[in-house]
Computed example of a mutant assay.
Amino acid sequence: MTTPPTPVSGLSDPDYAAFAWRRFRRILGWMAIIAAIFIVAAILVLQHVYGPMGWVAILAVIGGAGGSIMLTAVLMGLIFLSSGTGHDEAVKDID
Rank of each mutant, 00 (worst) to 15 (best):
G86N: 10
T6I: 08
G51A: 00
V56T: 14
D95F: 09
I94L: 10
T6K: 15
M31N: 12
G54I: 00
P7T: 05
G10Q: 11
A73L: 02
V56R: 08
L46W: 15
W55A: 10
V61I: 08
G86T: 12
M53A: 12
A36N: 03
V40E: 04
A90D: 14
A20F: 10
V45G: 03
W21M: 13
V91N: 02
F19I: 02
A36E: 03
G10Y: 12
V49M: 05
K92H: 07
A35Q: 05
V8H: 01
A18I: 14
M76V: 03
L71D: 07
M70W: 02
A90N: 11
D13R: 07
V40W: 07
L28E: 10
V56F: 13
G64Y: 04
T3Q: 12
I62L: 15
L71N: 02
A35T: 13
I43Q: 04
A41E: 00
S12Q: 03
G64D: 04
A65D: 04
I27P: 00
M70N: 01
T3M: 13
F24T: 05
L59K: 12
G67E: 13
D93E: 14
S12K: 09
W55M: 11
T85C: 08
D15W: 14
M1E: 11
D95M: 01
G84T: 05
A42K: 08
A41Q: 01
W55T: 11
A42C: 05
G84L: 06
V49S: 02
T85D: 01
R23F: 08
P7V: 00
A18Y: 13
A73N: 12
I43T: 14
A20Y: 02
I94T: 13
V61D: 00
D93G: 01
P7W: 00
A65R: 05
I43V: 15
V8S: 03
H48R: 15
G77E: 08
T85S: 14
A65P: 01
P7L: 00
D95H: 15
L75K: 14
Y50G: 00
G54T: 10
G51Q: 08
T2E: 07
F80M: 03
L44S: 12
G63C: 12
Y50E: 11
K92I: 13
P5T: 07
G77P: 15
A60N: 14
M70G: 01
S83H: 06
A42R: 11
I69H: 01
A90L: 07
M31Y: 05
V74C: 07
H87Y: 10
F19E: 03
Q47I: 03
F19C: 00
F80Q: 02
A60R: 08
W55Y: 07
P52L: 02
L44Q: 13
